[in-house]
Write a protein that binds this DNA or RNA. Structure first.
Length: 110
DNA sequence: ACGCTGACGTAAC
DNA sequence: AGTTACGCCAGCG
């Protein structure tokens, strides 16, 4: 886990997100040991656009809000993808987010 | 080459 | 307790 590997690590973690589950940028950043880099985590997702297999729609902010939906092909794509996995969304906010939250630090434990 | 911005989150005032 | 500012790092103007 170095500088450039940050992106790579983020992608790896996102790929590990189980279907029907979601996580937050901060959770990934914390898992990588740089909770302050949460912003960069989201930015890494931006780069994931060129990388298939990255369920970026499963990554939301700390409040469970689909903040990155705008960066998808269509703003509704993210919500539809999540709903397709059984996740309910209301006003761009994941319902039962606490229940669906998948924390890599807890699930993967370092 | 330099600086601002951006899918966030936390600390400080 | 609400608001403002900053940190992180890389892409882009």
């Amino acid at each position: 886990m170095k500088h450039n590997d940050f992106f790579n690590s983020v992608f790896d973690v996102v790929k590990l997100i189980p279907k029907g589950r979601v996580t937050s940028y901060g959770a990934i950043a914390t898992y990588l040991g740089a909770k302050k880099s949460s912003r960069t985590v989201g930015y890494a997702m931006n780069a994931s656009h060129s990388i298939p297999g990255i369920p970026a729609h499963r990554v939301v902010n700390r409040f469970g809000m689909l903040t990155g939906k705008i960066h998808f092909d269509t703003p509704y794509r993210m919500q539809e993808l999540l709903e397709s996995e059984g996740i309910r969304i209301e006003k761009d906010i994941i319902v039962n987010f606490d229940e669906l939250f998948w924390d890599p630090t807890f699930e993967l434990e370092l």
